[in-house]
């Protein structure tokens, strides 16, 4: 059997979901037998280099770079999975979604206690990604095939799901699917 090729990325997330992937512990060894990782923080490959079978997306879309990466994944992965609350509904970054963006910037860079009083600037270097008006759930911008809720999703859930995707379908137990 050909090894399935897996790509993963963290967009507007905290890498907690990736930690949870690592949290499958020794089963990682089994996983390596079943899959080959392509672009991923785990391999440190920065660009998808060949067609992938499974893409795991952590985090929502909060800036233009996130959006381009999401599109790259959608274009190159057969199956795309939203991993974690942020990918599914924006998560904690989306707490800003009903606050005007100017207020967010002012609060984060100017009025924050650690900034020099009245002195801080709002970062505007061209190298920085441009923040979007709100944080978007991935499935509102591209087609997402599966969702793994949780903050982070339980390691067992990730394991069961990967196993199911790589081999055949399996019923996910109640205890695994949680939103927090």
């Amino acid at each position: 059997m050909r090894k399935k090729i897996v790509a993963t990325t963290s967009l507007a997330g905290c890498f907690g979901c990736h930690m949870s992937i690592l949290d499958i512990d020794l089963r990682l060894v089994d996983l390596i037998e079943l899959v080959e990782f392509n672009r991923s923080p785990i391999t440190d490959i920065k660009k998808i280099s060949k067609r992938c079978d499974i893409g795991l997306i952590e985090g929502g879309i909060c800036n233009d770079e996130n959006y381009h990466v999401l599109k790259e994944f959608r274009e190159n992965c057969e199956v795309l999975v939203s991993v974690g609350e942020c990918a599914i509904m924006g998560g904690l970054p989306a707490l800003r979604n009903n606050i005007p963006i100017r207020e967010c910037f002012e609060e984060a860079y100017r009025n924050v206690p650690t900034s020099k009083s009245g002195g801080g600037i709002i970062p505007n270097d061209d190298e920085l990604p441009i923040i979007l008006d709100r944080v978007y759930p991935c499935h509102e911008l591209v087609k997402i095939d599966y969702f793994l809720p949780g903050c982070p999703p339980r390691a067992d859930l990730i394991w069961e799901t990967l196993l199911a995707l790589v081999t055949s379908g399996a019923e996910l137990p109640y205890e695994l699917v949680k939103y927090d």
Binding site: E65, R74, F105, P123, L132
Partner: peptide, 28 residues
């Protein structure tokens, strides 16, 4: 039917923050 990438006006989504930071969306 079944399009994988939906229509999304990224320029419009960047407009507000570009105004605040004084950047132009075309730089990306």
């Amino acid at each position: 039917r079944g399009a994988l990438i939906y229509d999304f006006d990224i320029k419009a989504a960047m407009k507000e923050s570009c105004e605040v930071t004084g950047r132009t969306p075309s730089s990306h």
